[in-house]
Each structure stands twice: as structure tokens, then as C-alpha cells.
């Protein structure tokens, strides 16, 4: 792709999300979402390949249908209440709106497009898909979150965490596993959304950091399946060790960063007298933890069955890029500064 075209596409990707962030009018928010969808399709089909075209087609159909339902719900709201402000949404329409945004985000009963689209595109485009493309719909969902029924959000969140954990168990492709991990994390985000939007923001922030770290690692190690992960300790031993820890942080084990949002969410749900929901969320995190553990096992604890045992590729020089090491440190060691992060949001 020519750099000029790439620049136009990336800047309109950024501007579409910014348009949705700054708008208080539903039509403008819808336009931002549409510009986002239109801008990422050429990035997906950058390499003209049957799988990329198929992924782009599936992404386009779901996103266009979801955007149409979103605009239909807002016109319906305008027809009844006579205004277009995002923050004042009447309750029955906001259910339809939540379902439309859930299709856009890939939350559990509407999640089937996400693993297939992720499998068809490259890892760097997949990084855009699971981080930047989630921000605009989540901003809309946070603005209407006080009008949504909490039961709906809790049911969607529980289904997401359980299906996200369950679906990833059967996968061997890294991109599909990361897609299911994204579904599970979004379930955590939206199950707390009605009670404490600031906590959902913290969870989103931590999720972005951990996901960017993992995608940059997989991009650097150039490994599409679990099997190829076993070679990586000879390419870059330090990266193999730390990315195994980063996977455990994604699963939410205590001394690492990923434990913080899960801890706070379970505490807040218990304070809201929703202890059974919190228990189910914590149990479904075990399902996710199983496949993260499988990834980190083959990343750091297995040796490829080669004919002659060699430890390091002496002639291959791998340099870890600076952003990756920065993100990796944030992924691993941010738990002690939890009070600072809470005071930021």
C-alpha cells in the first residue's frame, strides 16, 4: 500500500473515533462509527488474499448492520422524545441501542464474527481491531450506561466471560485465542459498567496495555500458532520469559497488573450485593487462565524436538523495540501503584 493512502486511511481511522468521542448528537456519533468502518476495510485487505477478503466482508456486514440498528434506535428515540442528545436516552430504546453496540464490540451472543475476522487479517491490523476499534462504541456505551437496565449488562457480561473462556479452550491459532481473550475482557468491562463507569475505564486501560504488549510480542516473534511458540526461547530468551509472565497477567494472577481490575470489580460487585455474579465471573476467569497457561507453557517451558541440541542462535541478533519493553514493564509491574491509577480516573 502506498504510504500516502496508508496515511489517509490511518488518519481517518483516528478522526472517526475522535468524532464519536466529541459528539453529543447521535447522528454525528453514527457518522464517526461509519467512517471508522470505511477506513479499516482497506487496511484489512492490504494483502490481497482470499482469507483477508473474506474477513473484510464479514466485518463489513456485521458493522454495517450494527450501525444501521444504532441509527434506527436513535431515530426512534428522537421520534418519541424529540431530541438527539446521547446522554438522555429513554429506557426501552436504550436496550436496542445496547444490543447494537454489543454487535459492534463483539460481546457474547453476538461475538461470532470476531474470531473469524481476527484469523483473516495480519497481527498489526488485529491490534487495531481489538484496541482502537473498541474505543468509540465503548464511549457511546459509557455515555448511556446510566439508562441501561443493569440486568441486561450483567447477563451480557457473564455470557461474554464464560463464552470467551470456553471458546478459547479449543483453539490452537494465536489470533483466535487473542480474539476470545478480548471477548472475555469486554465481558468484565461491561458487567461493571452500570455500577461504576470509572472502574470500567480502569479495566479498559489495563486491557489496552496488556493486549498491545501481547500483540507486539507475537508480531515480533512472528508466530501464528501455539506450535511455533516453542521455538521462541532460542530467538529471544528474555522476551520468552517475560511474555509468559505477561500472559499470566492477562489471565489475572495476583502479583501482576492484570489482577488489579479483576480485584476491584469483584469488590465493587460484592458491595452492590451481587456476590453470585462476582463468583461466576471469577470462576469463568479460570477458563481463560487455562489457555493463557497453555500459551505460556509452550512459550517458555518446552523445547522444540530438534536433532542437535542448540541453545542460542549465536548469529541472530534480535533487538527488542523500546515501546515493547515499556509496555511489558507496565503489563508486569503496575499492581503496587493501584491507588495512583484509581485517582487518575
Amino acid at each position: 500500500m502506498s504510504p500516502y493512502i496508508l496515511f489517509v486511511m490511518l488518519s481517518s481511522l483516528g478522526l472517526g473515533t475522535t468524532l464519536t468521542f466529541t459528539s453529543s448528537h447521535w447522528l454525528l456519533a453514527w457518522m464517526g462509527l461509519e467512517i471508522n468502518t470505511l477506513a479499516i476495510i482497506p487496511l484489512m485487505t492490504n494483502k490481497h488474499h482470499p482469507r483477508a477478503v473474506e474477513a473484510a466482508t464479514k466485518y463489513f456486514l456485521t458493522q454495517a448492520a450494527a450501525a444501521a440498528i444504532l441509527l434506527f434506535a436513535s431515530i426512534y428515540n428522537a421520534w418519541y422524545s424529540g431530541q438527539w442528545f446521547i446522554q438522555d436516552m429513554s429506557s426501552p430504546v436504550s436496550t436496542l441501542m445496547t444490543l447494537a453496540i454489543a454487535i459492534k464490540l463483539g460481546i457474547a451472543p453476538m461475538h461470532f464474527w470476531l474470531p473469524e475476522v481476527m484469523q483473516g487479517i495480519s497481527i498489526s491490523t488485529g491490534l487495531i481491531l481489538v484496541t482502537w476499534q473498541k474505543l468509540a462504541p465503548l464511549a457511546l456505551l459509557m455515555q448511556i450506561s446510566h439508562n441501561i437496565k443493569p440486568e441486561l449488562l450483567i447477563i451480557l457480561g457473564l455470557m461474554s466471560t464464560i463464552i470467551g473462556g470456553w471458546g478459547g479452550l479449543n483453539q490452537t491459532q494465536i489470533r483466535k485465542i487473542m480474539a476470545y481473550s478480548s471477548i472475555a475482557h469486554l465481558g468484565w468491562i461491561i458487567s461493571i459498567l452500570h455500577f461504576m463507569p470509572a472502574l470500567a475505564m480502569i479495566n479498559l486501560f489495563i486491557y489496552l496495555i496488556m493486549t498491545i504488549t501481547m500483540f507486539m510480542t507475537f508480531n515480533l516473534l512472528n508466530s501464528p500458532t501455539i506450535n511455533t511458540l516453542a521455538m521462541n526461547w532460542s530467538k529471544s530468551p528474555i522476551l520468552a520469559a517475560t511474555s509468559a509472565l505477561a500472559l499470566l497477567s492477562l489471565g489475572g494472577l495476583p502479583p501482576l497488573t492484570g489482577f488489579m481490575p479483576k480485584w476491584l470489580i469483584i469488590q465493587e460487585l460484592t458491595n452492590q450485593e451481587l456476590a453470585p455474579t462476582a463468583t461466576l465471573l471469577a470462576l469463568s476467569a479460570l477458563l481463560s487462565l487455562f489457555f493463557y497457561l497453555r500459551l505460556s507453557y509452550s512459550l517458555s517451558l518446552t523445547i522444540m524436538p530438534n536433532t542437535h541440541p542448540q541453545t542460542l542462535n549465536w548469529n541472530m541478533k534480535t533487538t527488542t523495540p523500546l515501546p515493547l519493553s515499556l509496555m511489558m514493564m507496565m503489563t508486569l509491574t503496575m499492581l503496587p501503584i493501584t491507588p495512583t491509577i484509581i485517582s487518575l480516573f
Partner: peptide, 20 residues
């Protein structure tokens, strides 16, 4: 915007019929 979307859909139609 819906015309842009329809144009994108038709181009994807061409792309899928060429690849599939």
C-alpha cells in the same frame, strides 16, 4: 455515508467473487 457504504459493499462483492 450510506452511498459510501454501498460502494464499499460492492467493491467487496467484486473482491469476493474474484477470490471465491
Amino acid at each position: 455515508l450510506s452511498a459510501c457504504e454501498a460502494g464499499l459493499g460492492l467493491s467487496l462483492l467484486v473482491a469476493t467473487s474474484r477470490t471465491h
